[in-house]
Design a protein around this nucleic acid. Structure first.
Lengths: 114, 114
DNA sequence: TTGATTGGTAACCATATGGTTACCAATATA
DNA sequence: TATATTGGTAACCATATGGTTACCAATCAA
């Protein structure tokens, strides 16, 4: 496998609803871990783990500020994920189930891979 | 949690490199399970499991044709995923990441090294 | 009809994930 | 200084994931 672990981690991070909600929060303002945890019915260690996953994917940056941990969004890794998915847009827009149709229109793009 | 299980399953399906490679294959042509398994150094049951995950996410359709199982791409579920990620484009395009956010709100700390 | 091909299921294994409670370290504050 | 707040770690648990081998059912072909 040619593993693109960046992409693995980004998609995996986005696969959890709590983590997507955390990212949505951070898109509006930086926040402390406590502020991020408040809306959720889970313990702080659980949020801490989610933040570690998000940090591992590079989507969140944490910096200690006194006893507070301030978190901020870093959307940069999403770019690659967006680009990966974008290549399939032609399929969902034109109801093309297989590339036979696609190749009729774009024979030069045959080498497209992950 | 407001769980969007569609999105959960789509992102989770995309988080595995073998599954992304299968989708890339299917973007070029419909294929049987055996054809899909050939490039990979894993057993057919493993591919079968990956296909079940992809089917569960609605990304692959399987239909039995004699003793062959023909698989086809259905990119439709990627649309929602693409839309979700798209909302963050402004962040990765304008470098509105955690650090610049933070510095906008805390200009006195600009001279700190990282 | 016999045998090879295709692909699915069963059972199992190791590891990862997402959650918990209990506790600890550091920091701010009365 | 004593205490409350913040958030991290440790240990544990249940379940999911990704892989294996062994086997089975169906179908195609000699």
């Amino acid at each position: 496998m040619v593993t693109n672990q960046h992409l693995d981690r980004t998609f995996a991070a986005l696969a959890d609803p709590t983590r997507r909600a955390i990212l949505a929060d951070l898109a509006e303002r930086d926040a402390t871990v406590g502020e991020l945890a408040r809306p959720f019915a889970v313990s702080r260690p659980a949020i801490s783990k989610h933040l570690r996953v998000l940090e591992g994917a590079g989507l969140v940056r944490r910096r200690r500020d006194g006893r507070l941990s301030r978190c901020g969004l870093n959307a940069a890794p999403m770019r690659e994920a967006a680009e990966w998915v974008e290549r399939y847009r032609v399929f969902w827009e034109n109801q093309l189930d297989a590339l036979s149709h696609y190749l009729e229109q774009n024979p030069q793009e045959k080498e497209q891979t992950r």
